[in-house]
Design a protein around this nucleic acid. Structure first.
Length: 479
DNA sequence: TACCTTTGACCGCGC
DNA sequence: TGCGCGGTCAAAGGT
């Protein structure tokens, strides 16, 4: 059981420390073996990131790559990362940020799945990242075929876990974050990119922010008259380092076509960080969208497992959003969500896959519609206040390379499925995560990580595996 | 052909 | 008052 769970869960492995360049490298190195291309640039280019040739536009690939690489590097170097970590550590100063550890290691099965999905790569890279959510979900999209089977398995496993367990807060963030990632979401049919959050976003700018290693992308909600904006910082891998929402949606989430839901589910969304599968329609949908175009991104994000911090400024999380709303509205919320939810992931993934993926985003149109299902992600949000039920069964799982002990579960508002809470068994390690099922699909789980590991991944059993390669390079398919 | 992404440049705010 | 930075605009390019 444990192993299975681990595998399932693993998707994202939390990293003990923020990746500095050095860390990152190590990580990358680790990954290299497994991962094909994701991590290449990392540290060396950190400087590059800072420097952008203004006059000359690089071809998308190039320009992006640099940015991505840079950003990633930067991330590694630490500014962004630190900031994120700091945020986490210092909620006071900033809105609470949740970091999700990325799963570095995954069971073979998961790996295979993920590989299909493509997300995992990121996780690997992300090692450094403190918190990572597995947004595998997005990944799933791509992988329908493989994943469907696998996911089903995972999902089952996960479900068992998830059902048993449940957690609260972090999930919100994660869910939200996931939503944000456009990548994951895949573009909405509209052309707008739907993000996991269920809204469509249009990127209107990108900029290298001082002090941030990652390039910051600016998105606007495409809904007419909707003032909501979000800023997304992605790490090298394309993982979302931080997401900040501004404003409040004055509309309900656009509903994506559901067709995917089934399909998505079938895909068996990969778990968030944990590798849990997210089958939720939303995710799926998004994923689908992305799959076509930006799958890579999502995957990346997930894979990278970079910690994502999502913060809401104001009420960004529209009341509509089940997910974000509750927590988010309160003020600024930072969530670690991995790509899964937010479109960000997409972006993040961009970095990873690069470049290729992004363009694809456009393509998404076709597929995207399915997104809404993704809502599940939203559902993830609900974290409320169900009393946490401590599970007598403490279960250790290693899926993400770390050992986790289940300490409780509860049903979060907005989500009929119970959320399972885990603590890292590492000595003095405060990292926690919770896994919750997002949709009817047993395979659809969202894993949210909180905190940073203060230790290396203790175990890499069979479970641990991170093959970057696993990520399936999304082939761009033009329509 | 249309739409979207990218990115340099501009504007406004804060220090 | 000036400088720096963040955020936004909008043209160019690509798909």
């Amino acid at each position: 059981m444990e192993i299975k769970e681990a595998e399932r869960v693993v998707i994202a492995k939390p990293v003990a420390s923020r990746p500095t360049c050095s860390n990152f490298r190590s990580f990358s190195e680790l990954l290299e073996g497994s991962i094909n291309g994701s991590p290449p640039n990392v540290c060396s280019e950190t400087t590059v990131a800072a420097i952008r040739p203004k006059t000359v536009r690089f071809k998308p690939m190039v320009s992006r790559a640099p940015a991505a690489s840079v950003s990633s590097q930067a991330d590694l170097s630490g500014t962004a990362l630190f900031s994120s970590s700091d945020k986490v550590s210092n909620p006071d100063s900033k809105p609470p940020v949740i970091y999700k550890p990325q799963a570095k290691f995954v069971s073979k099965t998961t790996v295979s799945l993920l590989a299909n999905m493509g997300n995992f790569d990121v996780s690997h890279q992300q090692q450094s990242l403190p918190l990572v959510e597995a947004r595998v979900q997005s990944i799933i999209q791509d992988k329908h075929n493989f994943t469907s089977q696998i996911t089903s398995k995972f999902s089952q496993n996960i479900q068992s876990h998830a059902q048993t367990d449940e957690t609260t807060e972090p999930s919100r963030l994660t869910s939200q974050i996931q939503e944000e990632d456009p990548k994951n979401l895949s573009a909405a049919s509209n052309g707008d990119r739907p993000s996991y959050d269920g809204y469509n976003w249009r990127k209107y700018g990108q900029k290298q922010v001082k002090g941030s290693e990652y390039p910051r992308s600016y998105y606007k909600c495409t809904h007419p008259n909707c003032p909501v904006k979000k800023k997304v910082e992605r790490s090298l891998a394309g993982q979302i380092a931080e997401i900040v929402y501004k404003g409040e949606h004055n509309h309900s989430k656009p509903q994506p076509p559901k067709r995917n839901s089934s399909g998505m589910q079938g895909l068996g969304i990969v778990s968030d960080g944990n590798g849990q599968d997210m089958s939720t329609p939303l995710w799926n949908n998004h994923l689908n969208d992305r799959n076509e175009g930006s799958e890579g991104r999502v995957e990346d994000q997930n894979e990278t497992g970079l910690p994502v911090h999502s913060t809401y400024q104001g009420k960004a999380p529209p009341s509509h959003d089940p997910v974000g709303i509750g927590s988010i509205n309160a003020g600024v919320i930072t969530s670690d969500n991995s790509c899964g939810l937010s479109g960000e992931c997409d972006e993040g993934s961009k970095g990873m896959d690069g470049d290729d993926d992004e363009p694809k985003a456009k393509r998404r149109k076709n597929d995207n519609q399915s997104n809404e299902a993704g809502i599940s992600g939203e559902g993830a949000q609900a974290q409320e206040p169900c009393p946490l039920v401590q599970s007598s069964n403490e279960t250790e799982i290693v899926g993400d390379g770390f050992r986790w002990r289940k300490y409780g579960q509860k049903v979060v508002k907005g989500n009929p499925y119970p959320r399972s809470y885990y603590r890292c068994t590492g000595l003095k390690c405060n990292v926690r995560k919770y896994v919750e099922r997002v949709s009817d699909d047993p395979g659809a789980f969202i894993t949210t990580y909180e905190g940073k590991h203060n230790h290396e991944m203790p175990v890499r059993g069979t479970n641990s595996v991170s093959e970057p390669n696993s990520r399936v390079p999304t082939t761009r398919s033009k329509a």
